[in-house]
Design a protein around this nucleic acid. Structure first.
Lengths: 191, 191
DNA sequence: TAGCCTATCTATAATAG
DNA sequence: TCTATTATAGATAGGCT
């Protein structure tokens, strides 16, 4: 879909890579949104730029979809292009459970409040400084009532909340991953 | 992009919806894969079909990307499509306030709370005033190696396991948002 | 049986460079 | 912005569970 055909291999020229990343990311999110609207599907797209910034799209929200995925509300069948999927979802679940146990005991209301306040304080400051540059993304015209697209980009240590608290990711809290099954391999039509 | 243009609204005819879902999902995964290869990005796409089956694409793996996202290895900046920003940010604000109210009663940090709330008020106003102009951006350099595409759809009971390493998604554990950061704005060269 | 997903072909809308 | 290339609507058929 462009003036000329390109090979699907890493773009070396940095400037081109940046432009392509931006355009394609936008297109990807748009496509995801359209899929949700057209088919009544729910989807989440997480993209980390080479610069390590995270861009997220979600309908009804990335967190909701991720939770659902992690909770394995569905069954599985797989399609794996390169062989390597085998995953770790379970381990993650188990580990998450372990962490939860610990965290729950360690974190007291007061502690949470302190961190919460600090985070918001920081947020407030950054927003004040940067708001000028922010712009809204208008992807799909009449998207579903709840579609969110966000770019996350906080220091590794800082826990980002945009979804976190508000939506509560107690993924590990309930249930157990179900139906993890890598059925068939996938392929050609992928690339 | 087809025999004829279509409106982006829910497809009513079930058979058409299914065909479209399948085709567009395939196209979405393909795009995600290309973005990863071309730009050295890492991405995960999770899609739940109306039939409730989960289809997942990930590079280097969906789990890896999700973990990274859940652990908030990066900072945040928001990008919300049309009109969703308000709801999102404000909801967070309101939720935060709500939590504050509760906490307030539970604890004795009234003084701090007051200031905190003031900060949130300020934040809320600024966000409300600027949201219309928000936009997103981002990018950068090099990337990874494997890609995985999977469709999950196994009976909840059949859980298979592996052990392991890993990250845990104990989001709820932290309970509180940290490092909430609307980072920077962004660069026109993004759009 | 019914429900849900995929394959193929072609004209054409959407878009990458 | 401009357009050659791509993605996909539509129609239909086949397949898996």
């Amino acid at each position: 879909m462009g003036r000329q055909k390109i090979e699907i291999k890493k773009i070396e020229k940095k400037s081109s890579l940046e432009v392509t990343f931006s355009k394609r990311r936008t297109g990807l999110f748009k496509k995801a949104g359209e899929l949700c609207v057209l088919c009544g599907a729910e989807a989440a797209v997480i993209v980390f730029s080479p610069g390590r910034r995270a861009f997220v799209f979600g309908h009804p929200s990335a967190d909701a979809v991720i939770d659902r995925f992690l909770h394995r509300e569905t069954n599985s069948r797989a399609l794996v292009p390169a062989g390597q999927v085998h995953g770790h979802v379970q381990r993650q679940y188990l580990e998450a459970l372990g962490r939860l146990e610990v965290k729950k005991e360690q974190e007291e209301t007061v502690g949470e409040m302190g961190r919460f306040r600090g985070s918001l304080e920081e947020l407030r400051k950054k927003v004040a400084d940067r708001v000028e540059e922010m712009t809204m993304m208008m992807m799909m015209e009449s998207g579903p009532s709840s579609t969110a697209m966000v770019e996350y980009a906080a220091p590794p240590q800082e826990y980002n909340s945009s979804g976190g608290v508000l939506h509560g990711h107690d993924l590990a809290a309930h249930g157990v991953p179900h139906g993890f099954d890598f059925g068939f391999g996938f392929d050609e039509h992928l690339f």
